[in-house]
Design a protein around this nucleic acid. Structure first.
Length: 620
RNA sequence: GCACCCAUAGCUCAAUUGGAUAGAGCAUCUGACUACGGAUCAGAAGGUUGGAGGUUCAACUCCUCCUGGGUGCGCCA
């Protein structure tokens, strides 16, 4: 390993000069490569060793200068800039990349650890949309990134398939949809379920209107109470009336006939009512079938699948057991809670006064179940950042319960995906559906591919296949290259463009390399010392930076680090094509050496895109 | 009211975690089209890193305050 070898050289030079050995010597890639191929930051070392940076840099430069594989080492304002011997880079690539291309970029930081990454976790009422796409891609890719760092990773999904909201769509189907099935309409089955859910809201709102119009006296009572409250709004009748109507969504739900019927249906479901379960199974079947299709199209998959309908009762016993051990306290009103004020999380109820579970109780149960079933050392959840508090509380409770693995739980919180017009709003119909977006992007990729196939040599099926790959890679790349923590703006129009910093650019670079290598025939070693064009050196150096980028991506749970590395690699590659002839190179030794560089770049592209879950094309 | 997150070029995003002259792409303007695959390359222009202080040899990065945007703070999920 070139970088490790250089670090060793630097370390022994320091030990020799000062009699002390630094814990770590970081070999960095300088921002401006005109300064040198690689650099040693003497400030970092100086801090640990308490030696003046310029002095340390000078000592190091003197020791490393001319010391193979270093050609020259120059101390400049606290840095030691290294220029390598001409053959060092390609030799390193041959060894580190081409020896075993599939292992390139792997790390050992998480070796021996068994982790679970939960992502997607959809509500069966809602077909997947743009926000879910970010979630799915992040989860799928982060799992790959962690596995690349040496962990054994299980990918998990948890279907939110029960509860009052599920009854809403069931009831709507029963009452308003005239027995229609996906086969009748030809509609994607999860979308039919989604339509039922939307229909419920509409009908419910109508009933709320009827109720409100018929009971003006109730409004007066409500208004009096509302205005007496501490956070009372201004006495504006129109605004208050709106708030009153909105309050029926939850507080007054059962006062509305449809709401009451829905609540009764939930009770029937919990009793195990045969008829309700038959309908539930039917509609769940539709939802799951639809999701399965979308997951396939998105290229995401899971090793373990949980359903809330099977896990929702799990937490209760654990709480009761914890209550006996004094982890939780029973309040005077019968509710069970935990005091997390030491963690600044306040008090949290974990069992209602009627003994039933709350949301977090289920999560406690599911988390313990997952850990026990799979012998996990740690767990990761990919869930929107609005649930940060929820997860902070969940983790704190599990620590209080004494689980050894509770210190290795992590919430990968990601920000919203906004549209250029602002937030997606289901009421305003601005939600970008995952299936639609994928289809539209694929259609545009078809046009791009056809435009480049002037002689119509490609069959429709092949065009379609390529377009699907281009579209998926473009979307994955666009959503993954951004830091997960930050909310992002996603412009559907931009996502289907294939110029610039896009997934398509990465695919293109790969296809181009592939066809060159195919045309080149058998590779031979060539003369490594002939690679001395700056474009060649940059490309080789960028390739060697993958292991560090992949390690950082794992450390930070951020696949975007790999995406940005890919962009840099592709930029270097395009520049390399432009400056250096490969197949046309007249010197056979040089041609062979450049082809080796291309082969290493292929491995880099394959490894990097694999970490992001991007499919590639041999021909574009 | 309290807590957390975000703010970088006109737009979308980076910045080796406190290190050298803050970088890419898009859009704009200019150049390279008999091109190893132009879904490309080269160049120009674009910045007081929201504002004000502070710590440091060194601050986009850390601390304090302010402004603007987002999200939480349920016996909802």
């Amino acid at each position: 390993m070139l970088l490790a070898h250089l670090a060793d050289l630097a370390r022994s030079a320091i030990t020799l000069a000062y009699g002390v050995s630094p814990t770590q010597v970081a070999i960095e890639f300088p921002e401006d490569r005109a300064r040198g191929d690689l650099t040693v930051n003497a400030f970092l070392l100086a801090k640990e060793l308490r030696i003046a940076p310029p002095k340390l840099a000078a000592t190091l430069a003197a020791a490393l200068n001319g010391c193979s594989p270093v050609d020259t080492a120059v101390a400049v304002s606290g840095y030691v800039n290294l220029k390598l011997q001409p053959e060092a880079l390609l030799t390193a690539l041959l060894q580190e990349v081409l020896d075993d291309p599939t292992a390139f970029g792997q790390g050992t930081a998480l070796a021996g650890r068994r982790l679970m990454v939960e992502y997607s976790a959809p509500n069966t009422n809602k077909p997947l949309h743009l926000g879910h796409m970010r979630n799915n891609f992040l989860g799928h890719s982060t799992a790959a990134v962690l596995a690349n760092a040496g962990a054994t990773v299980l990918r998990a999904n948890l279907f939110n398939d029960r509860g009052i909201h599920i009854c809403k769509s069931m009831l709507a189907w029963k009452r308003f949809m005239n027995g229609v099935t996906p086969t009748d309409t030809g509609q994607k089955s999860d979308h039919l379920v989604g339509d039922c859910y939307v229909r419920f809201d509409k009908e419910f709102a109508r009933e709320v209107e009827t109720h409100c119009a018929a009971h003006p006296e109730e409004f007066e009572v409500w208004k009096t109470q509302r205005l007496a409250q501490k956070d009372a709004p201004k006495a504006d009748d129109a605004a208050l009336a709106r708030e009153w109507r909105a309050s029926f969504r939850e507080a007054g739900f059962a006062q509305i006939p449809l709401g009451a019927e829905c609540t009764e249906m939930l009770r029937a479901w919990e009793r195990g009512d045969t008829e309700v379960h038959a309908l539930w199974n039917l509609m769940n079947g539709w939802a799951f079938a639809g999701f399965a299709k979308t997951y396939t199209d998105l290229g995401v998959s899971f090793d373990v699948v949980y359903r809330e309908s099977e896990t929702w009762t799990l937490g209760r016993d654990l709480i009761l057991e914890g209550l006996e051990r004094g982890v939780f306290q029973r309040r005077a009103d019968g509710a069970v809670e935990i005091d997390l004020s030491a963690e600044k999380l306040g008090r949290k109820v974990v069992l209602r006064s009627d003994g039933t579970s709350v949301y977090i109780t289920q999560d406690i149960g599911t988390t313990v179940l997952k850990a026990a079933q799979n012998q996990l050392d740690g767990q990761l959840w990919v869930v929107g950042d609005e649930q940060k508090y929820h997860f902070a509380v969940l983790f704190a409770i599990l620590r209080h319960m004494g689980y050894a693995w509770a210190s290795d739980l992590h919430h990968l919180a990601y920000g919203l995906v906004n549209l250029p017009e602002g937030r997606m709003k289901s009421r305003e119909g601005t939600v970008v559906d995952a299936d639609d977006l994928l289809a539209e992007t694929t259609a545009l990729a078809v046009l791009e591919i056809r435009a480049r196939d002037e002689e119509h040599r490609l069959e429709d099926a092949e065009v379609q296949r390529r377009a699907a790959v281009v579209a998926l890679s473009a979307l994955r790349f666009m959503l993954l290259k951004v830091n997960p923590l930050a909310s992002m703006t996603f412009d559907p129009k931009e996502s289907v463009k294939f110029d610039g910093d896009t997934g398509a650019r990465v695919l293109y670079a790969y296809a181009r390399l592939r066809s060159m290598l195919d045309a080149a025939g058998t590779l031979s070693r060539g003369n490594p010392a002939l690679l001395n064009d700056p474009a060649e050196i940059n490309l080789a150096l960028t390739l060697l930076a993958l292991p560090a980028a992949a390690a950082r991506a794992a450390r930070e749970y951020n696949p975007g680090v790999v995406a940005n590395w890919l962009l840099e690699l592709v930029r270097d590659l395009n520049r390399f094509y432009d400056r250096c002839d490969v197949l046309r190179a007249t010197d056979q030794e040089l041609r062979a050496a450049r082809l080796q560089l291309c082969a290493a770049a292929v491995a880099g592209l394959e490894r990097g895109t694999a970490l992001l879950g991007m499919p590639l094309l041999q021909r574009m």
